Simulated assay, not measured.
Amino acid sequence: MDKKNIKQKILHFPLTKVIIGLIVCGLIIGLGQTLIQKGLNFTNIDKDLKTLIGGIFVAVLAIISYTYLFKFYEKREITEFSKKGIIKNLLIGLVLGVILQSLTILVIYLKGGYSVISINPILFIIPPLTSGITAAIIEETLFRGIIFRIPEEKLGSYISLLISAFIFGALHISNPNSSLSAGIGLAIQAGLLLGAAYIYTRNLWFPIAIHFAWNFTQSAIFGANVSGNTISKTLITSKIEGAEWFTGGQFGPEGSIQATFFCLIATIILLVLSHKEGKIIKPYWRE
């Protein structure tokens, strides 16, 4: 085997592609965030609006960097961000995310643990809107677009799904007010569900929409913490109290048992549909 073939095999080995993808996209996103923040500091725009503009800029930069990197690297069209069916995938994803989060809060409400303290000015939705957009687009681009998609080509859908879900949950254990149980919950709620959403549609718009709707509804509408983080302003200021198993405690409703249950049901449905439609990729040793 000549040296050129060896280099090509190493360059296109899944782990190599994952590492290069994360490094290149991560560096571009980080650099872009620094530059846009410095640029916005020279303006007199409202602080929340600056954050929103910066967040949208970085989110768009994540999509652009991913698209051009893998178009060049893998010599293919980037169908993950295809415009075909984008409206349908975004709308269904938004509805699904809102429903899942609303069911989670409904359980807390029915057990007497949720109450509204005040309804705030409409502009209070800007911070959670910013957080929702940036987290959904950047995390889905990196996790489902790189960490899940690339290993799936060799390891198959199910193994790659478990690996990417484990990594997603493990990284969130370091979040404020987090715990091992919260990390396991997020591995199922986001790691499995959003991976299954990608498998079913084979594009990133669907999981991005679910991710955004889940976070935005949780913070902006219901006034709850998101993955242990408190948003400075929300449309509704609420009080959530009760046993941690159904409220999630300071970590937020994502740490509750019902959030994991509802998201697991949605995951199973998406995987069953994907299996029926032949969208599950088998590991290379079973092909």
Rank of each mutant, 00 (worst) to 15 (best):
S232K: 05
A209C: 05
V107H: 12
I210Q: 06
G185Y: 09
S219N: 07
N41V: 00
E153I: 09
A259K: 01
F57K: 03
F262L: 09
F124P: 00
W245E: 00
I78M: 12
G26Q: 04
A209F: 09
G191W: 10
L40G: 01
I87W: 13
Q218D: 11
F166Y: 12
N177W: 14
T267I: 04
T43N: 11
N120M: 10
I221P: 03
I108D: 10
I92C: 11
I105W: 09
I10A: 00
S102E: 05
I125W: 10
I138D: 02
S131G: 13
W205T: 07
F216P: 00
L180N: 02
I150C: 06
L271E: 12
S256I: 05
T51N: 14
F13A: 08
I63H: 00
E153A: 13
Y198A: 03
N41D: 10
K154A: 00
E254G: 01
P176F: 07
F262Q: 03
F148R: 01
E153P: 01
F261D: 00
V24L: 15
P127E: 08
K88P: 00
T43P: 06
E277H: 15
L94F: 15
I147W: 05
E140M: 11
V98P: 02
R76T: 06
I92N: 08
L194V: 03
I240S: 00
A224V: 15
P128G: 07
K50D: 02
I126K: 11
S160V: 03
E153V: 12
L35K: 09
T247M: 14
I86E: 13
I137A: 04
E153M: 14
G255E: 11
L15K: 06
L15N: 09
L91M: 12
I45N: 03
A213S: 13
G242M: 03
G132E: 02
I281G: 01
T230S: 13
S157G: 14
Y284M: 07
I6K: 08
I119A: 12
K4P: 01
G145T: 11
I167M: 01
G93I: 14
I150M: 00
L40S: 03
A182H: 15
G97P: 09
L27H: 01
V98H: 04
T16H: 07
G113F: 07
S181L: 11
Y198K: 04
K111Q: 12
G249S: 02
A196M: 13
L27F: 10
E140L: 06
I53S: 01
I63G: 01
I10L: 06
K17F: 08
L162K: 09
K71N: 11
V107D: 09
I167H: 09
L100M: 10
G85S: 02
V18G: 09
I19F: 05
I159M: 06
T16K: 02
L155G: 02
I173P: 12
H211C: 04
Y158W: 01
G26V: 04
I133Y: 10
T260P: 12
Y114H: 02
G30Y: 12
L52R: 13
T230H: 14
N177C: 13
I36E: 04
G85H: 05
L204M: 08
A224P: 03
W205P: 00
L22Q: 06
A187P: 12
L142M: 15
K3Y: 14
G97I: 09
L96W: 07
V98E: 03
L106H: 07
G132R: 10
S174P: 08
G39F: 06
F42K: 11
